[in-house]
């Protein structure tokens, strides 16, 4: 790895920042953008998330991995305000985020995407993009009625949106309904739309799920470029090749807890991680299958609301 001569500056910075961080759960980072403490979420008798301490390094790409039912998506929902924890608190850029509504979380600079893409089907691609811009004057009802008050700003937003569409190679689809895009294109659109918010941190929930292999490389490239633009990325992913390829740091969850942390290579050699993925023989199977069932139900629920 050290042999790479033209490693982009963002990667070097991230490596440098994470160089001396110990490979253990809840490790302290040099410059954390997100710090969470004792976050617990229970569903009935099932504890889906129980994270004692976690820190996410600014400017790095961090992967959150773990077997099905490990609580990754639930943890994502909690951090972004889409679900309320039973206990716990966390800060983002130094300001507390516990109990903050999802739209305020986004305004503070933490934007997420969803496992099942949420393209706004009956809006055009460019309208999807424009929607992402924050602080729009025309989004208040009375000012919206008077085009003169917002048309200037709309023009700026549209220019920014068009640049992003070119970068994400969606400019040919500009006027199409988002619902007519392919699955991979929707993922691209969702990511581009999130960038319209101009966030400090992007949270990607399974960005590669359901994307055809031809688009995978370009998506990977886009994620990497976020780091070069100075953004922090936290993503959930099952594809280990992708995790190895793009992440600077990996956090492993199992049964709601953080069980390991480290660079991709060390984590994937960690026996605890292999254990978690191949079935925890020490923990009986009943508990496991209950969690899997909960996860399946949750996914089905998500699928229903998506229809």
């Amino acid at each position: 790895m050290a042999a790479d001569t033209n490693v982009p500056p963002g990667v070097l910075k991230a490596r440098e920042a994470l160089k001396d961080v110990p490979h253990e759960p809840g490790a302290k980072k040099k410059d954390p953008i997100l710090v969470a403490d004792k976050v617990v979420r229970r569903f009935g008798g099932l504890t889906a998330v129980q994270v004692d301490h976690i820190e996410i390094q600014r400017g790095a790409i961090t992967a959150l991995i773990g077997p099905n039912g490990a609580g990754k998506t639930t943890f994502f929902n909690l951090l972004t305000g889409f679900d309320k924890p039973n206990e716990g608190n966390w800060t983002f850029n130094g300001s507390p985020l516990g109990g903050v509504a999802p739209h305020q979380v986004a305004r503070k600079g933490m934007v997420r995407t969803f496992q099942l893409t949420k393209a706004l089907s009956r809006l055009s691609v460019i309208d999807n993009m424009r929607l992402g811009a924050t602080g729009q004057k025309g989004e208040s009802f009375w000012r919206g009625l008077v085009p003169a008050l917002w048309q200037g700003q709309e023009k700026e937003i549209t220019e920014r949106a068009d640049e992003l569409l070119v970068r994400f190679k969606l400019d040919a689809k500009r006027e199409d309904f988002a619902g007519s895009l392919s699955g991979g294109q929707r993922k691209l659109l969702e990511m581009a739309r999130a960038l319209m918010v101009q966030p400090d941190m992007v949270m990607l929930d399974e960005p590669m799920a359901g994307v055809n292999p031809a688009l995978t490389q370009s998506l990977l490239g886009h994620v990497k470029s976020l780091r070069e633009d100075g953004m922090t990325v936290l993503f959930v992913e099952h594809d280990m090749d992708m995790v190895r390829d793009i992440s600077d740091w990996v956090i492993v969850m199992g049964q709601g807890q953080v069980i390991a942390e480290g660079t991709p290579d060390t984590v994937m050699a960690d026996p605890r991680v292999i254990d978690a993925y191949l079935g925890a023989h020490h923990d009986g199977t009943a508990h496991d299958s209950a969690e899997v069932a909960a996860e399946v139900a949750a996914e089905a629920e998500g699928g229903k609301s998506d229809e």
Binding site: A101, P102, V111, F114, L120, R122, D127
Partner: peptide, 14 residues
């Protein structure tokens, strides 16, 4: 109109 399509997506955009 975006809310009609998907509220959560709109929330996630602030």
């Amino acid at each position: 109109k975006a809310i009609r399509e998907d509220e959560d997506a709109v929330r996630s955009l602030g």
